[in-house]
Amino acid sequence: MTATIATTPSPAPESTLEGHGQPLIDKTFRWILFAATAVGIVFLAVLIVYVTLKGLPRLTPALWQNMPSIRNPDTAGAQSAITGTIWVMAFTALTALPVGILSAVYLEEFGNAKSRFQRVVDINIQNLAAVPSVVFGILGLAIIARAFQLGQTVITAGLTLGLLVLPVVIISTRESLRAVPQNIRHGSLALGATQWQTTWKQTMPAAIPGMATGTILALSRAIGEAAPLLLLGAVSFISFNPTGPFSAYTTMPIQIFNWTKDPREEFQILAAALIVLLLVLLLAMNAVAILIRNRTQRRW
């Protein structure tokens, strides 16, 4: 039981410490991993370089100053598609953000996580997030465009895309609410604040950076969607800007799709230029999301 202290020095190692270098399998495996990573990056880089080089001649202010034209490929632009995208995105945000944030707050702060209702809702939201966008297009066409008789308008597109990104908004908002430590809520409640005051004045402000990041990423998914809008009847050729929620519209992905179908070389170049513009917009949105996340990182 008594501990003994070793008095003899440990024996000298029988061999030297020289190694035999990296075994071949280690090196090979490392290269395979690197190659797998490189595939994605190289592919994306090639795509961006190719599209940019091809679209470069038409990446001029005319792209967003001129309207599309079938007869004059040399002067055609995409102004109606750009304004259409802005209109549709505005209505997408108006649909998805309030509904998504309020449902997330209910589920996270007020609902009973163990109730059967909430478990059913949880599973449904997870699954809805994985539903292909074209299915939402069919839903929008059947219910919003036809049953509600909203027709082929900006508001139909906004509502449909709003429903499409709703699960993503709910999930990301819930996650940012969950990241707020419980002891902040308890601190507020212990001061005699109501649950509503605690949620509104403590939990939600603390979760705003996470919510902002999640919703921007959700909107950047919606902005590139073409499939549901094709079903919803976004007009492929339209040479005026939307005038309101009940106006006909086109969007950037639809315009790209339309131009690439045209055999004339000028339209191929125009499509490439508009793809570059859409990519820049997407990257900018993602950059803003990352910026918000990094700027407001909290140490709880």
Binding site: N183, I184, H186, A190, L191, G192, A193, Q197, K201, R298
Partner: peptide, 24 residues
């Protein structure tokens, strides 16, 4: 109530103190 871990709110020092009187 004062808790084991100091649970200050992610706000200014002033707002931490003013929060209780405000909500009440």
């Amino acid at each position: 109530m004062v808790f084991q871990k100091p649970n200050v709110f992610p706000k200014s020092i002033y707002e931490n103190v003013a929060y209780g009187p405000k909500v009440n």
